[in-house]
Simulated scan of single mutants.
Amino acid sequence: MPSSRGPGYRAAGPRAPGTREDSAPEDVISATKDGTAIRAATPRPAPDNVLSFPEPKAKRRQRILLATIGILAVLTAGILAIAVYSPVLAVRTVTVEGTKLLTADQIRTALAPLEGKPLPQISDGDVTALLQPLVQVKSVSTQARPPSTLQVRVTERVPVALVKQGEVHQLVDEDGVKLSDTADPAAIPLPVIDGGNGTLPKDLFQAITGVLGALPADVLGRLSSASAKSVDAVELKLVDGQTIVWGNAGEKELKARVLEALLKAPADPKNPVRVYDVSAPRHPVTR
Rank of each mutant, 00 (worst) to 15 (best):
M1S: 15
S4T: 06
S4M: 10
R5W: 13
G6P: 09
G8M: 13
P17L: 13
G18A: 09
A24H: 12
V28G: 06
I29Y: 11
K33M: 10
D34Q: 13
T36I: 12
F53Q: 08
F53Y: 14
Q62H: 00
Q62Y: 10
L66T: 07
L66C: 04
T68W: 00
V74M: 11
T76I: 13
A77Y: 02
G78K: 02
A90W: 02
V96W: 11
G98N: 04
L101M: 09
Q106A: 14
P113E: 06
P118E: 07
P120S: 11
I122G: 11
L131K: 06
S139A: 15
Q143A: 14
A144R: 15
P146T: 00
R153H: 12
E156N: 02
P159R: 05
P159Q: 02
V160E: 01
L162G: 12
K164V: 00
Q170H: 08
E174L: 03
D175S: 13
G176M: 07
V177W: 01
P185A: 08
V192N: 01
I193V: 14
D194H: 04
N197E: 12
G198Y: 00
L204N: 00
Q206G: 01
A207M: 04
G210M: 15
V211K: 07
L212K: 03
G213W: 08
D218S: 14
L223A: 08
L223Y: 04
S224Q: 14
A226I: 09
K229R: 15
K229P: 06
K237N: 14
V239Q: 15
N248C: 03
A249W: 05
K255P: 08
R257Y: 06
L259P: 09
K264G: 01
P269H: 12
P269C: 03
K270S: 12
N271A: 14
V273G: 03
V273E: 05
T286F: 05
